[in-house]
C-alpha cells in the first residue's frame, strides 16, 4: 500500500513537472554548442577570441530574426562543417548516439541471463 502511495506522489510530481519551463536561455545554449574554431577545445561561450565575439553577434542577430536553434546550426555547419557544433547531428551520426544505448541494453540482457541461468541451475 505504501508503495502505491509513493508512486502516486511520484507520478503526480512528474506530471506537474512536465509543465515546468526550460529556464536555460536559448542564446547561452547555442553559444555553448558552437566550437571556437581558432581555439583549443573551447566553445564560443568560453572564448574571448575575435572569432567568437563576431560569431556571438551573428547568432544574436539570427535569434532576433526568429530562427530556430536547428536553423542556426545548419547555417553554421554549411559554412564551417560539422566540426563547429559540439553536439553531432543525429541524422548523420546516429551510430554515435545509439551505440551507448545498444551497449546498455546488451549489458542488461547479459546480466539478466546470468542471474536467470544461475537461479535455474540452483532450483534444478
Amino acid at each position: 500500500m505504501r508503495l502505491i502511495y509513493t508512486f502516486l506522489i511520484f507520478f503526480s510530481f512528474l506530471f506537474f513537472n512536465l509543465f515546468a519551463k526550460d529556464i536555460s536561455t536559448k542564446e547561452a545554449e547555442i553559444f555553448k554548442n558552437i566550437r571556437c574554431l581558432i581555439c583549443q577545445g573551447q566553445s564560443i561561450a568560453d572564448s574571448n577570441s575575435e572569432f567568437s565575439q563576431t560569431l556571438k553577434l551573428v547568432v544574436k542577430d539570427q535569434i532576433k530574426e526568429g530562427k530556430s536553434k536547428e536553423e542556426i546550426y545548419d547555417f553554421l555547419i554549411e559554412k564551417y562543417g560539422e566540426w563547429i557544433v559540439y553536439k553531432p547531428t543525429f541524422s548523420k551520426n546516429f551510430i554515435l548516439w545509439l551505440l551507448p544505448y545498444i551497449f546498455l541494453l546488451l549489458g542488461g540482457i547479459v546480466l539478466f541471463l546470468l542471474i536467470k541461468k544461475r537461479e535455474n541451475t540452483k532450483t534444478n
Binding site: 574554431l37 575575435e50 572569432f51 553577434l57 551573428v58 559554412k79 564551417y80
Partner: peptide, 13 residues
C-alpha cells in the same frame, strides 16, 4: 566593420 558579414562567407580568421 562588425565582421558579421564575413561569417556568411565561412571566414574564421
Amino acid at each position: 566593420n562588425s565582421g558579421k558579414h564575413s561569417i556568411k562567407f565561412g571566414v574564421y580568421g
